[in-house]
Amino acid sequence: MSIRQISVFVENKQGSLVKITDVLASESIDLRAMSIADTQDFGILRLIVSDTDRALEVLRKENCIVTETAVVGARLRNEPGALATVVRVLSENGINMEYMYAFNGATPHHAYVVLRVDDNDKVEALLLDSGIKTITEEQVSEI
């Protein structure tokens, strides 16, 4: 059920991010969601894209360091309290979350959350039990 996320190593140097976004732009790869984790030395750019395989290929060709991770994508109603429900479910069940980020869909009614956890299947089951839908890789391209 999980969705595919690409992470790219970003050196802490002027121009390193531009190189990555330019590569994706020139290949007409659409970004669905992104977030950056930064440390003193380097950053990790995390992306959900329209065509994961091609993005991986072109980034590697440009000598970028990339890795792919399966993450959970949850679809929420775009209203106050929706995210709180998700976080509560995880917390109550003792799920440790590495990171998360959110994005809006094309329609105004839904928002999406990307969750990086250890056990995707378990988390998806817990969310479904609480009435929260998760999305598949195929659905990503429809967002």
Binding site: E11, I44, Y99, R116
Partner: peptide
């Protein structure tokens, strides 16, 4: 130089 083997999506 960072290598793909040493890279990860998490800072930890």
């Amino acid at each position: 130089e960072m290598t793909e083997e040493m890279f990860s999506d998490t800072v930890t």
